[in-house]
Design a protein around this nucleic acid. Structure first.
Length: 180
DNA sequence: CTATGGTTCATAG
DNA sequence: CTATGAACCATAG
């Protein structure tokens, strides 16, 4: 695992690369990448530096509310097949749009697995680049977020998806019923 | 309130 | 080690 930090206007993110690509990303302020992760002590190859640059650009783009120009290869080996299918589906959500947990579940061919989608999102090793923040609950509820809810809201704001557009009818949406 | 599906953890063989 | 089951969820109805 090769670690790098990425300064952004929102603070310093931490990225970890394996031999196969970007393996994990962490928000500013969280604990340093676990020392328990197997160290991959290969010299920082030219390829890794290139991945790092792509990661930096992608991160800055999303923080600015834009679509990602080009993603680095993602090392999703830490997930199960099910999780990888979900993460893959999340990558297809463009900036400025959202999907519900149900839509993701249907997309990967397990219409009933909505709650499992929530689990998989929580296990997302690469937040922001894998846009778990664009997944919301049905009926205009926002759902949750493993890190601070502030991040989910902030990211959606930058993309123009907040307050949530899909307001079914009548009910107070967005600002008041979004806790827990 | 209940049903849902995948994952994780505890426990038993 | 595998098998089974219950609890856990960023849910839906």
């Amino acid at each position: 695992m090769i670690r790098r930090t990425i300064p952004t206007p929102d603070g310093e993110f931490a990225a970890g690369f394996s031999a196969n690509g970007l393996r994990r990303l962490r928000f500013p302020g969280s604990e340093p990448l676990a020392a328990s992760e197997p160290e991959f002590l290969a010299p920082a190859s030219q390829q890794t530096e290139h991945w790092f640059e792509l990661t930096r650009e992608a991160l800055l783009a999303i923080l600015a509310g834009h679509n990602v120009p080009k993603l680095p290869p993602l090392d999703l080996a830490s997930g199960t097949d099910f999780q990888r299918r979900i993460w893959q589906a999340l990558l297809e959500i463009p900036a400025g749009e959202t999907r519900t947990y149900q839509e993701i579940a249907r997309r990967i061919g397990s219409p009933g697995a909505t709650r499992a989608v929530g689990n998989a999102c929580g296990a997302n090793p690469i937040p922001v680049l894998i846009p778990c923040h664009r997944v919301i609950a049905a009926h205009g509820r926002i759902g949750g977020f493993s890190s601070d809810m502030d991040w989910k809201i902030r990211l959606l704001e930058r993309e123009g998806s907040w307050p949530l557009a899909k307001s079914p009818v009548g009910a107070t949406q967005g600002w008041f019923d979004l806790q827990t």
